[in-house]
Design a protein around this nucleic acid. Structure first.
Lengths: 156, 156
DNA sequence: CCATTATGACAATATACTTGTCATGAAAGA
DNA sequence: TCTTTCATGACAAGTATATTGTCATAATGG
């Protein structure tokens, strides 16, 4: 079973990254579908759980996406009552986003489900150093990003 | 510099996969933007270059996506004159998709550009076994996919 | 104080997909 | 052969993740 359509190592890696990305999003959404939570919303909740109350622009900067994108997700979470706006001592206009008790409860449930799912994969993932894998991917990404900056219609 | 928002190895891996996926798509589009080719179109062209003329459903099966999705891309490529429909000896109704000379020329240009880009990354990627990385990702994906099948509102 | 930058709010667009439907042509079994 | 089932093409709409653009206003920094 050949899943590749590429003939260069990097091309093949990117190909696998794409496949795994879609699998992960799809499985993640499936896992949490009854909670009405998308993977994007999950990512925002995770930041709040990990770093505490954060402003929208700061979350965007941390994830390297546009503030508008985070704003959309946060608006959905606000509507769902999973986060609230609190005063930002450092900014009068830009309030901090914080999890509500409901949000915390829901997120913990999600984590529980994920833990169970991860655990069930233990056998299949035996022999793969996931942390090393993640580090290598980060290195590849950094390399690509640094070169990509230099592209400026350098076409053939 | 911490790019993670996760605290489990698998979660962190998925996180890096997402980041690299977006970086790759964005860089790929940037690299080929003057050619008017998206990464989806590129993937179809690559299949045709690698396997020769193929029917739409077969390409979809090979990439594990819906035939409708491939059809959309192929329609765009047809409109751009980069591929044509040829008679399928094995099927009267389902024609084969083949690259036109224009398509082949364009694809070769793209590959040339990519090769140059990859080469410029050699130093940064030194010490990383991209092939091993790709294989490991494929294994992780297979593990997730096999478990995901079993999810059926197994919520907490 | 004034110019620049940051934020929020709103809108539109892009990309890579999916699901759904329907007519028809092809394949497979009774 | 007949007929039921499956595959394909054509078309439509929707989803998920994210982007770019614009505008008014608030905050910051020289």
């Amino acid at each position: 079973m050949k899943d590749t359509t590429s003939d260069t190592p990097l091309g093949e890696l990117i190909n696998q990254v794409r496949l795994l990305f879609h699998q992960a999003v799809s499985t993640g959404n499936q896992l949490h579908r009854d909670a009405g939570i998308s993977m994007s919303m999950r990512a925002v909740l995770e930041q709040l759980a990990q770093y505490g109350a954060t402003s929208v622009p700061d979350m965007a900067r941390r994830r390297n996406v546009t503030r508008q994108h985070i704003q959309q997700i946060v608006n959905d979470l606000l509507e769902a009552g999973l986060v609230t706006q609190t005063l930002n001592p450092a900014h009068k206009r830009s309030h901090l986003i914080a999890m509500t008790p409901d949000g915390e409860r829901l997120f913990e449930n999600m984590r529980e489900r994920e833990r169970a799912f991860y655990t069930s994969l233990a056998t299949e993932l035996d022999g793969i150093d996931l942390t090393q894998l993640a580090n290598d991917l980060a290195a590849v990404r950094a390399a690509i990003a640094s070169r990509a900056e230099q592209i400026d219609t350098v076409s053939t």
